[in-house]
Amino acid sequence: MDIALLIEHGLNGLQFGLMLFLLAAGLTLVLGIMDLVNLAHGSLYMAGAYFAASFTGLTGSYWLGLLLAVGATALLGVVLELAVVRRLYRRDHLSQVLATFALILIFNQAARMLWGAAPISLNVPAALATPVQFTQDFSYSAYRLFIIGAGLAVALLLYFVVVKTRIGMVVRAGASNREMAVVMGASIGRVFTLLFAFGAALCGLAGALLGPILTVQSGMGEGILILAFVVIVIGGIGSIRGALAGALLVGMVDTLSRTLLPVLTRSLAPEGLMADLGAALSSMLIYILMAAVLFFKPEGLFPARG
Rank of each mutant, 00 (worst) to 15 (best):
L6G: 05
L6K: 03
I7T: 13
H9M: 13
G10D: 13
F16L: 14
L20P: 10
F21W: 09
L29R: 00
L31R: 07
V37H: 01
H41L: 08
G42S: 08
A52Q: 06
F55A: 08
G60S: 07
L66M: 06
L66R: 00
L67F: 09
L82C: 13
A83F: 12
R86M: 11
R87L: 14
Q96I: 02
L98V: 13
A99R: 05
L105H: 04
I106T: 01
I106H: 00
I106D: 00
F107Q: 01
F107N: 01
N108E: 15
A111K: 00
S121Q: 14
V124T: 10
P125A: 04
L128N: 11
V132W: 11
V132D: 10
Y140F: 15
L145D: 02
Y159M: 14
V161K: 05
V161L: 14
V162E: 03
I167V: 13
G168F: 01
G174C: 09
A175L: 03
A175I: 04
R178G: 12
R178S: 13
A181P: 10
S187W: 14
F192R: 10
F198V: 00
A201H: 02
C203D: 06
L210F: 02
P212Y: 01
P212F: 02
G219D: 05
M220E: 07
L225Q: 03
G235T: 06
R241V: 13
L248T: 03
L249F: 11
G251E: 09
G251I: 04
T255S: 11
L260G: 11
L260F: 12
S267C: 05
D276G: 15
L285D: 11
L289S: 09
L294R: 08
K297I: 02
E299T: 03
G300N: 01
A304C: 04
